[in-house]
Design a protein around this nucleic acid. Sequence first.
RNA 1: UGGGGAAUAGUGUAACGGCAGCACAACUGACUCUGGAUCAGUUAGUCUAGGUUCGAAUCCUAGUUCCCCAGCCA
Length: 588
Amino acid sequence: MENEKDVLGSVGGAESQERKADFIRQMVADDLKTGRWNGAVCTRFPPEPNGYLHIGHAKSINLNYGIAAEFGGRFNLRFDDTNPEKEEQEYVDSIIADVRWLGADWEDRLFYGSDYFQQMYEWAVELIRKGKAYVCDLNADETREYRGTLTRPGKDSPYRNRSVEENLDLFEQMRKGEFPDGSRTLRAKIDMAHPNLNMRDPIMYRIVHEHHHRQGDQWCIYPMYDWAHGFEDSIEGITHSICTLEFENHRPLYDWFIDAVNEGRTDDGSGPWGRKIHHPQQIEFARLNLTYTVMSKRKLLRLVKENYVKGWDDPRMPTVSGMRRRGYSPSAIRNFCKRIGVNKFNSTVEMALLEHCLREDLNKTSARVMAVLRPLKVVIDNYPADQVEELEAVNNPEDPSAGTRRVPFSRELYIEQEDFMEEPPKKFFRLAPGREVRLRYAYFVTCTSAVKDAQGNVVELHCTYDPATRGGDAPDGRKVKATLHWVSASRACRAEVRLYDNLFTKENPDDVEEGQDFTAHLNPNSLETLRDCFVEPSLTRAKALDRLQFERLGYFCVDPDSKPDALVFNRTVGLRDAWARIQKTQTE
RNA sequence: UGGGGAAUAGUGUAACGGCAGCACAACUGACUCUGGAUCAGUUAGUCUAGGUUCGAAUCCUAGUUCCCCAGCCA
């Protein structure tokens, strides 16, 4: 623990562990130092259950959970379920699973904003009594007209000066369901000329006769976000209510509502209105944007509904469930979230950074295995036809404790088509006529001939092997420039492999021509399915979502569609490929 | 044209009046039974113009550019 930044007790510990604290953590540390919240730190992740979580939500979860964990505070998971028209139990379930998978722990603090509806209702009645809220009979169109514009002030609703008694009575009737949807609202009486549009008598409640996924038909009036959110935070004792930048304009309202309830209340609870309620601090940070994908729920919903992808968990989606199916690990995502930082200005992180974090984690943790995606048959002419050897292969060179396994070797093998060239260009080190290469963990082999079909395509290779190089080393010390992966033709298992690429061809899919939308830049080759792949036999034991490295190819995981007799793998991400870069510069 | 925010290498971030640093990307090279990993190195930055100061990314003034707000969505 460094002492150059000596702050109070455990607070100092938490702070100095974070070498470069972002502005929010600095704020939390300052609050702890000044005793603003009496030592409490309580954050929350408050999703609306109207869609699946994506990598942008992961950033928020990581921030909120990370702060609570680092400062010895609490982290709540709370559904902000105030709009029954958009919300579904399916989304609640997926969000719970995703937050848990990401490693954030809310312990026993899973809450629903809708469980606080009765308390919110009572506070609304209190505002009416204080003359700070009124029932308005304007319809949606009229309300918009009265609101004014960005540059023109609004004008007062004709219903703004109803008596407290009339407002109380009308609001009670609204709650009882005596009015149709949209016919009335409850509004805060603030200032119709306020330069911040959110303060022009914002709507607190609207009438919606709709079944709620959790509250059933108990309510037909539903609170608006601004009215509900601060109270949800207040009730739970949230200290730092962290949200995204677009809510900056809402902060004055967040504060106004809590202050309005607190007006006339006292610290000790004496007086007619009782004790003051807790007033959290709202803090805003910038959303995550990533190149080559889209992040808004609306656009992701369209991709699903219009069948551009196969569902919310399609491995091409930036959703948490899609990334899980793609083969991402929670720690890779967490690490990415740490690296991108937290700020107050919009930025777009390169997909390359995400992929770097992915490879960094997978390199350390995933078992190596051999698989041939585009097979080319190889016959080792001087190897006995009936012989099969079990050769020892290292499971993970980065982790000796992962041990070794045995891989069958036989006279007929498959290698990757792209590992052979009849006329190799400069810098191509792999197999070619007359050239010797190593088969990984097996033998040195030399290509003696290539068999072609009628169209001139190479369909089979003949090689000889050097028995003295068993295991992969030449006793005479001679070197080869390439090592190829391979599988035994007789022992390998057939598998389907799904190769994924960016969903969009443009870094910013929203950068479109007049009249187009983001779908104009969908990548037609974002999914390529290979059905004639071969994998080493050890893979029949792999379970759904197991993460592996196919040597020299990339990281792959077992798709949930996979069955022991019909294996299916997803390519999570390719290995960095120096040869591909050489090829690219040669063709340019 | 009202109000609220924000600008640091290609990208993402650090600096809290005192040597502009880190990571990703790109490029060199070394090493390698994965053209992976690893290691060493290179390229590259304070939105503009003034001012304060011994000293400015940081403070002041003016400007420029970008983002958000006119849902009975969140």
